[in-house]
Design a protein around this nucleic acid. Structure first.
Lengths: 217, 217
DNA sequence: GTCGTACCGGAATCATCAATTCCGATTACC
DNA sequence: GGTAATCGGAATTGATGATTCCGGTACGAC
């Protein structure tokens, strides 16, 4: 529609090759550093990892927050996709197990991802997104409940406290990077339907849930 | 025994009454604030809660660290005592359950306590104390293992990752202060002996354990 | 009551840490 | 070779929180 799509005065000049390279390096470095050390990693860390100066970061991103948004914008969609993948598994219980194992593995591999999903006041899902997450998970859990393989009273809002718990064991020991699988197994055994008594406390209702796990924006 | 118990030159003057009162108030306020907000609570918080100025804190304690030590020195001994209490319960499995419920309840009530037990680089058990904790827990777990009520491969070093996980749910929602009981129940079901497959990862060995959960001093 | 001093409040200081800005030096591209 | 885009990284800014300091305040001896 613009009459002067390539008017000489507004045509953006192509980037210098080294600048473009640095941009790529920075994104990759940010991804690695946030994955290893979480979102509290410093820009200096990231710059050093990319082999550039901090100033270069600001020629590519307006702020630290924007880097995080650039990297993790797709994170929530990707988590939603994990739910869809799990739903394609026929066995309702195996689907639950797979969902937790896949998402936990992702969060173990990328500490920043977990911090984005759990919310941190600064980053994290907003209220609307939190709702969407719950809504997407509901079929997975309802199917398992109907099939009688999920412990009575277990609901979608249990997912976040479980994520939070696992989050605290991901980096515990460098000597045992997969230790989290041990404790996920414990939790999954508790989630499975058994003849044991019901759980002692009700799950969070959806309002408390969104209040707890939403960033303030 | 001292020959000069009240020699005039060295007799400490009695404190002014208001000063003594402030000291009591401060200890109480520190206890409450650390319990509610954890050890990262500020001295200003504590002073305000006690109704005094920050300066007054420094007339009673040399540093924030010293306050923490004063309040939580007995914490580890008290945790050890909880193990003894649990050992007095006849049923080996009930003893395990009781141990976790009592210690978790204490940590839910007092966030500072949990932070002391888990270690934080700055505060927490030193290496020797970590050993002592493991040693004390061993009879409790060995007895349960011998009785066949504890899942195969569960060991004393599992206690700290579990504490760490629970620690992340204690304060989740003000609307549900006892929510942690729900997730402790899940974990305990996983710890109990069943005919299910063994846990996927070995527990931390004692060396990794002490490395992970000791303050650097 | 009043005086001396132990004690007080809380503003000011110090320290740390990390995001962001700035500018002289460098380098890709013509 | 010229020059403007780009760079590195030191300096700046801002926030936060422990610790210090000092002009008052008020306890309690007289």
């Amino acid at each position: 529609m613009p009459a002067d799509a390539d008017a000489p005065s507004t045509r953006p000049r192509p980037k210098r090759r080294d600048a473009a390279l640095n941009n790529d390096r920075l994104i990759e470095a940010a991804r690695e550093v946030f994955a290893r050390r979480g979102l509290s990693a410093t820009l200096e860390d990231i710059a050093a990892h990319a082999g550039v100066g901090v100033g270069t970061i600001y020629r590519n991103f307006a702020s630290k927050r924007q880097i995080i948004e650039t990297l993790y914008d797709a994170a929530i969609d990707s988590a939603l996709a994990d739910v869809q993948t799990a739903l394609e598994i026929d066995d309702p219980w195996l689907a639950i197990v797979t969902f937790f194992e896949v998402t936990a593995a992702n969060q173990a591999r990328d500490r920043g991802l977990g911090e984005c999903l759990l919310g941190d006041d600064a980053v994290g899902p907003n209220e609307h997104t939190a709702w969407r997450l719950v809504a997407t998970l509901t079929p997975l859990f309802e199917r398992a409940t109907k099939a009688g393989v999920l412990r009575e009273g277990v609901t979608t809002t249990d997912v976040w406290p479980i994520f939070a718990m696992l989050n605290s064991v991901y980096g515990l020991s460098d000597a045992a990077p997969d230790l989290w699988r041990r404790y996920l197994a414990l939790l999954l055994d508790g989630l499975r339907a058994t003849d044991r008594p019901p759980l002692p406390e009700p799950a969070l209702d959806v309002d408390s849930f969104t209040a707890t796990f939403s960033a303030v924006d």
